Lab assay of single mutants.
Amino acid sequence: GAPPLPPYSAGGREVTMKKGDILTLLNSTNKDWWKVEVNDRQGFVPAAYVKKLDSGTGKELVLALYDYQEK
């Protein structure tokens, strides 16, 4: 199953993602919540729920390892 959710501390809205989604990583300075862009929406997802990909394009991409439903 998915890892436990860290307390929400990102101070911005969250976004929903599905397992297998490829998201653009915008900011990973917060260790628990990373800012991503998905379907032209920006928001935060739990860092433990995604994995960085080596895209080779200069853009940082992450793979959704679990479904996440915004609150």
Rank of each mutant, 00 (worst) to 15 (best):
L65W: 03
R41Q: 12
K35E: 13
K18P: 01
D40K: 10
Q42D: 10
S55K: 09
P4D: 09
Q69V: 13
K18A: 07
P6F: 01
D67A: 04
F44M: 06
F44P: 00
G58K: 09
L65Y: 03
K19W: 04
N39H: 10
L65S: 02
W33I: 01
R41M: 15
W34T: 02
W34E: 01
N30R: 07
R41W: 06
E14Q: 15
V15Y: 04
Y8H: 08
S9R: 14
D32N: 08
E60F: 09
V62S: 02
K71N: 14
Q69L: 12
G11K: 10
V36T: 01
Q42A: 13
W33Y: 04
A2D: 07
G11Q: 13
A47C: 05
P46M: 02
E60P: 13
P3Q: 05
G43L: 05
L5F: 06
Y49L: 07
V36E: 01
R13M: 14
L26F: 04
E60N: 15
R41K: 10
D21V: 03
K18F: 08
M17T: 02
N30M: 08
S55N: 13
I22D: 00
D40T: 08
T29F: 08
D32I: 07
K31F: 06
K51Y: 07
A64F: 01
K35Y: 15
E60A: 13
V50I: 06
A64K: 00
A10C: 12
E14D: 13
Y66C: 05
M17N: 01
V50R: 00
P7N: 10
Y49V: 04
K59I: 14
S9N: 13
L65F: 03
L65E: 04
L61Q: 12
L53T: 05
L26R: 03
D21L: 04
Y8A: 09
Q42N: 08
K31P: 14
Y66N: 04
W34A: 02
T16W: 12
Y49G: 02
G1T: 15
L65N: 03
S28Q: 10
W33T: 00
V50N: 00
T24M: 10
K71R: 15
P7S: 10
I22E: 03
N27E: 15
G58P: 09
S9W: 11
V45F: 00
L63G: 02
V36Y: 00
E14Y: 14
E70F: 09
L65V: 07
D40L: 07
K51R: 11
N30Q: 11
I22W: 04
G20Y: 03
L61V: 09
D32E: 10
G58W: 07
G56C: 11
N27Q: 10
Q69S: 14
A48L: 13
R41Y: 09
E60W: 09
I22M: 06
D21Y: 05
D67H: 04
T24R: 11
V36I: 06
D21H: 04
G43Q: 02
N39Q: 12
G1F: 06
S28K: 05
L53S: 03
N27S: 12
